[in-house]
């Protein structure tokens, strides 16, 4: 078992939007020693009071199977889906990135932002805030390029993910 390789999985969970649900999920992860790489949550159906959690985690296949089963066991959880194993899916993150600088560096940051299709959402004489969406890898790459140009602040939403094709969760 210990020889099994750790894998990264993206899991979507549909839950009742009730008090304490997020604590229940995160408590399960910390209590059982699972990793959370990122976690996002928001209400997706106000009428039925349902929220959707997207959690990116890593572990051996046995641990990933456990995570899914443990989540399913929580009473307010309606459905758990391991998007990584259940076919093609799309993952997106949104990031807000602040870059400080003047002169050539400032211009260069704007040029790179253009290549990445990042939007300028705030601007002063000495700074920009860029908004960008994409895969985790794309955002990592963008941030890396901004580092020498005066990267001042980073804020990321974590991954949201949905399966491709007509079927819902």
């Amino acid at each position: 078992m210990s020889e099994q390789k750790s894998e990264r999985h993206t899991i979507a969970v549909l839950v009742d939007n009730e008090a304490g649900i997020l604590a229940r999920v995160t408590g399960l992860f910390s209590g059982r020693g699972y990793n959370i790489e990122s976690l996002t949550v928001a209400e997706v159906d106000a009428k039925q009071a349902l929220s959707r959690i997207t959690v990116v985690t890593s572990g051996t296949p046995m641990v990933i199977e456990q995570i899914k089963a443990q989540m399913d066991r929580l009473v307010p959880v309606h459905k758990t889906s391991d998007l990584t194993v259940e076919g093609p899916h799309i993952e997106r993150e949104l990031a807000l990135i602040k870059v400080q600088g003047t002169g050539e560096k400032r211009v260069e940051s704007l040029r790179i932002a253009d290549i990445f299709r990042a939007k300028v959402v705030d601007s002063t004489n000495t700074s920009f805030v860029f908004e960008t969406t994409g895969s985790t890898a794309k955002i990592n790459a963008f941030i890396k390029l901004m580092e020498p140009l005066g990267l001042a602040d980073v804020c990321r939403t974590g991954v949201v993910a949905i399966s491709r094709g007509p079927a819902g969760l």
């Binding site: 008090a19 304490g20 408590g27 209590g31 009473v75």
Partner: peptide, 15 residues
């Protein structure tokens, strides 16, 4: 409800 969350199957706070 915070203390008993990990030691119950489920819990409720009636508001």
């Amino acid at each position: 409800t915070g203390i008993t969350r990990p030691c119950t199957k489920h819990n409720y706070l009636v508001k």
